[in-house]
Design a protein around this nucleic acid. Sequence first.
DNA 1: TCTCATATTTAGAATTATTCTAAGGTGTTG
DNA 2: CAACACCTTAGAATAATTCTAAATATGAGA
Lengths: 146, 146
Amino acid sequence: MKPVTQDRPYSQTLSRLREAGLRPTRQRLALGRLLFDGGDRHVTAEALHEEAQAAGVSVSLATVYNTLHQFTEAHLLREVVVDSARTYFDTNVSDHHHFFLENAGSLMDIDGGKIAITGLPQAPEGTDVARVDVIVRLHGTPRPAE
Amino acid sequence: MKPVTQDRPYSQTLSRLREAGLRPTRQRLALGRLLFDGGDRHVTAEALHEEAQAAGVSVSLATVYNTLHQFTEAHLLREVVVDSARTYFDTNVSDHHHFFLENAGSLMDIDGGKIAITGLPQAPEGTDVARVDVIVRLHGTPRPAE
DNA sequence: TCTCATATTTAGAATTATTCTAAGGTGTTG
DNA sequence: CAACACCTTAGAATAATTCTAAATATGAGA
C-alpha cells in the first residue's frame, strides 16, 4: 500500500524538530507538515486533528494536543487567546496581532510592524511585559473576492 | 441573627436592573451589589459565587452564570477574554484595556483614553469592528505597596 | 543489525468550566 | 390575590482539554 501523505519536502519540519530537541516521529512530522507547509495558519486542536484524518494520517487527539503544546514551547507556534471556548495556535510566531471574525471563529494576522501603540502605562513594579496582544473583534462575514 | 450584608444603598443596582428590564430579584440585587459597590472589579463566575456565599447570600452557581450573562447583555458588565481557562467579567464598561497578571490570574484596567493605536489596517469588506482589545500580559508578581 | 532504555503515542477515563433541563418559586399586573 | 410570565435551582449534560497507564516507536551503542 502506498503512503498516503505527499512526498514533497518536509518543509524543514525535520530540521525544526531536531533543533527543538523533539524526536521526528511520524506524527510530529505529519502535523508539522500540515502546519508549516503553506502560509500562516491558525488552527484549533480539533481542526488539526480532523485535517490529519482527512489527509490519511492517523493521529490521536491527545497527540495533537501534546504536539501543539510542544511546538508552542519550542516557539514553532504561538497560542492565541481570543475565545474562551477554544484555543487557537498560530504558525506565525513573529510580532503581530489579530483580527478575529467572531461569526466565523477565524483569525487573520495584522503585521506587528504596521501598528503602533502609544501611551501604555508602565507595568507595575515587579512585573515584566511578556507580550502585548491587540485583538480587533469583527462582526459580519467578509465578502469573498468573486 | 443579623443580616450579614451591609445595609447601605443598593448602589443604584435596583434602578440599573429596572432600566435593563430585569426583575430585581433577591439574587440579582445581591450580586449587583457585590459587583457595583466599590470600584471597578474583575470577577469570574466561581469567584463571585464564593463571594456571595461568604457574604451569606445564597445563590446557585447557575444563577451566577445567568446573571453575569444578563448583566453583560444589558451592558452593565463586559466580558474579558484573556485566559482560555476561565471567563472574566469587568464592571468597567467604558473604553479601556487590560494588564493581565498571568501568575496571579488578575486583571488591571488601563484607561482607554491614555493609549492610542495607529496603523490598524481596515477591517475586511463586509465586517465591522465590534471592539479592539489590548492585553498586556505580565509575568512576575507586583510588589504590594508596603 | 539487534537490543535496550527512553521518549512517544494512545484509548479511554478524568477534569473543569460552563450550559442545559425541567420543576418549583417569585414578581408584577390587573 | 389570581394568574402568568419570569427566575432560580439542583443536577445532569456538554465540550474542550488533561491525565493515566499501557503499548509502541525511536536512537544509540554493541
